[in-house]
Write a protein that binds this DNA or RNA. Structure first.
Length: 469
RNA sequence: GUCCCCAUGGUGUAGCUGGCCCAACACGCUGCCCUUUCAAGGCAGAGACCGCGGGUUCGAAUCCCGCUGGGGACGCCA
């Protein structure tokens, strides 16, 4: 989600300023990168409607857009840095570095590379090379301060003493992320880097590289992180993490985009429900807050409900149908008819997520309903209810026309004739046709269900009640 | 431990060129209305001495310092 929000900010900024939104896949780490992961990112972006102007699938003047296909450029840049004396080879073994780090940690101190390989003699280097010792490439961090102006945080300064001589090319020849991003950003003519706050401490390294490579600095904007309800960084523990998981849970892309845009950013006024157009028109990096934001599912649900409430009925129905099909409640390929449209409209004010429709539509789409335990307890413990229900069934069999006012009159009259209140009869009828304690207005439900099913279910309940006593 | 970022009610934000703020909007929460239930909707309300402590000033949520708290980064990961 954090990544999606960051992508959204980038997209909004590019669209607002008629810029170019470039999608580059940073798959430098073979172990963590996979086709699945990439597909997940692309699917998520597409679903959210964050279209890119250059990148995977569509290409562009700065191709290729997979970082792993740009290694040669990265290595060339590293070589030039070594040639310029701005980087050097490091022959230290991973084992040695690990031990040093552990030793330092045991003392509660942070360890930085000790520059053992910075001043190796020519003879020593020749010796190591002759022995075919694996070598990594390290950037030689110059003394003094490194600073940059961040659009959301202002000026941020780091002391060179706190930046170690970081590796830019591994001993196996693979470039490290820091080198790759900077080289690619330069090559791709990136003007604005909008990314998560967690990169802020990497930025001085990047600034150093931009400078060493003779490039001008892009604009940096580090956006705050999204936290879970426990104020910890959003992760698997907090439930859904991937964008597509939210689709599965019944959220609308427009609602999620709107919600995400308001996490850490505000247009400066009180607007909350904002279309993409409005979002784009109002977006500015300056409106991004500096503090982390907690992801509040309750508010997302509310917002999704707002979008459901405002969606054109046909569009909404078309979005729900696949879910109904998935649950076997609606035949695949069947066309949307007027009856379905009316059902969706009836359920609409009660739905926060698309999946709510599935649950609520069930009684209308299955042959026989099951009575909830709670419903039996609350509404079926009425004396002589079986006979009452039978009477209702009989009354409704003859109601003409089978519409709300006539149905209501019929039920109320039945109650009157049997000298009981209407409420218990209405509740029992609800249980008969839906099996539940809660549903949309009963008479609307009956109309939608139709005479045949209504009467059948009432008789069914009467029979059920008869066996209970 | 070191470095960096942040700090307005439970949550997201507005206000932050100081006075219009004994703090606004939204979600959530509570109650009422509507009502056959559940929602939706309408109305009302509770909830923040603007993290704490010092300054500066006639006056500070708004400026400065310290503290505390939260978060992030400290990898031949990205």
């Amino acid at each position: 989600m954090g990544g999606a929000r960051t992508a959204l900010f980038n997209w909004l900024y590019a669209r607002r300023n008629s810029g170019t939104f470039i999608l580059r896949i940073e798959d430098t780490d073979a172990e963590r990168s996979s086709a699945d992961m990439v597909a997940g990112i692309l699917d998520g972006m597409k679903w959210l409607g964050l279209d890119w102007d250059e990148g995977p699938g569509i290409g562009g003047p700065h191709a290729p857009y997979f970082q792993s296909e740009r290694y040669d450029r990265h290595r060339a840049a590293a070589a030039s840095l070594v040639a310029d004396g701005r980087a050097y080879y490091c022959y230290c073994s991973a084992e040695r570095l690990r031990q040093e780090r552990e030793r330092a940690e045991a003392r509660g101190v942070a360890w930085q590379y000790d520059r053992q390989c910075l001043n190796l003699s020519a003879a020593r280097i020749a010796e190591l090379e002759a022995a075919n010792t694996p070598r990594a490439t390290r950037f030689k961090v110059p003394p003094g301060k490194t600073a940059f102006d961040d659009v959301v945080h202002g000026r941020i300064e780091f002391d060179g003493d706190h930046i170690e001589d970081f590796v830019i090319v591994r001993s196996d020849g693979h470039p490290i992320y820091h080198l790759s991003v900077v080289v690619d950003d330069i090559d791709m003519e990136i003007t604005h880097i909008v990314r998560g706050d967690d990169h802020i401490s990497n930025t001085p390294k990047h600034v150093l590289l931009f400078t060493a490579l003779g490039a001008t600095l892009p604009v940096f904007a580090h956006v705050p992180l999204i936290l879970g309800a426990d104020k910890k960084r959003l992760s698997k523990r907090h439930g859904a993490t991937s964008v597509m998981e939210y689709e599965r849970q019944g959220y609308l892309p427009d609602a999620l985009v709107n919600f995400l845009a308001l996490l850490g950013w505000s247009p400066g006024d009180d607007r909350e429900i904002m279309s993409r157009r409005e979002l784009i028109a109002s977006f500015a990096l300056e409106g991004i807050t500096g503090s982390n934001a907690v992801f509040d599912v309750a508010k997302l649900d509310w917002m999704n409900g707002q979008y459901i409430a405002r969606m054109p009925l046909e569009q909404l129905t078309n979005a729900v149908v696949p879910l109904l099909v998935r649950d076997g409640l609606w035949p695949a390929g069947a066309s949307v008819d007027d009856w379905l449209l009316r059902l969706i409209e009836l359920l609409r004010p009660r739905a926060k997520r698309l999946t709510d429709f599935v649950d609520q539509a069930r009684p209308f789409l299955v042959e026989t309903v099951e009575y909830e335990q709670q419903a039996i307890h609350s509404h079926l413990k009425v004396p002589h209810l079986s006979e009452h229900v039978t009477a209702v069934a009989r009354a409704l069999r003859d109601v003409v026309p089978f519409d709300e006012p006539h149905l209501e009159t019929a039920v109320r009259q039945t109650a009157e004739q049997r000298d009981i209140k209407a409420a218990p009869l209405i509740h029992a009828t609800r249980v008969a046709v839906t099996g539940r304690t809660a549903s949309p207005g009963l008479f609307e439900v009956l109309v939608l269900l139709g005479r045949e099913r209504t009467v059948a279910r009432l008789e069914q309940l009467a029979a059920f009640l008869a066996t209970q006593t």
